[in-house]
C-alpha cells in the first residue's frame, strides 16, 4: 500500500465535475483506492463516497492505493488532482 498527501487547489474542491473526473479515473485501475480527509477513509471509486467528504479548496487529503497497479493509479490520481482548474 502506498499513500501520498495532496492539497486541493482548484476552486470547486472535490464535487461536481472534478469529483466525477476523479471517480472515473480511479475506476480505470484494479487497485483499491481510498481518499482520507480528517481521519476518515472513503472509496475513491464511488461518487457518493467522494461527495460525502465535502472536500473544498485548501483541504489536505491523503490518497491511498493498494493493489497490483497501485503506483500507476497513484500517479494518475495525483496528476488529475493537481491539474484540476475549475
Amino acid at each position: 500500500m502506498i499513500e501520498r498527501k495532496v492539497i486541493i487547489n482548484n476552486p470547486t474542491g472535490l464535487h461536481a465535475r472534478p469529483a466525477s473526473l476523479l471517480v472515473k479515473e480511479a475506476n480505470k485501475f484494479k487497485s483499491e483506492i481510498m481518499i482520507n480527509k480528517g481521519g476518515k477513509d472513503v472509496n475513491a471509486k464511488s461518487i457518493l463516497s467522494v461527495l460525502s467528504l465535502g472536500v473544498s479548496n485548501g483541504d489536505e487529503i491523503i490518497i491511498k492505493a493498494n493493489g497490483e497497479d497501485e503506483k500507476e493509479a497513484m500517479d494518475a490520481i495525483i496528476n488529475l488532482i493537481e491539474t484540476l482548474v475549475e
Binding site: S46, I47, L51, G54
Partner: peptide, 16 residues
Amino acid sequence: ADTHLHILSFISRKLM
C-alpha cells in the same frame, strides 16, 4: 460560500 458543499456532503453521506 460553501453552504451547497455542506448540503451535498450531508446528503451523499446519508445516501451511501
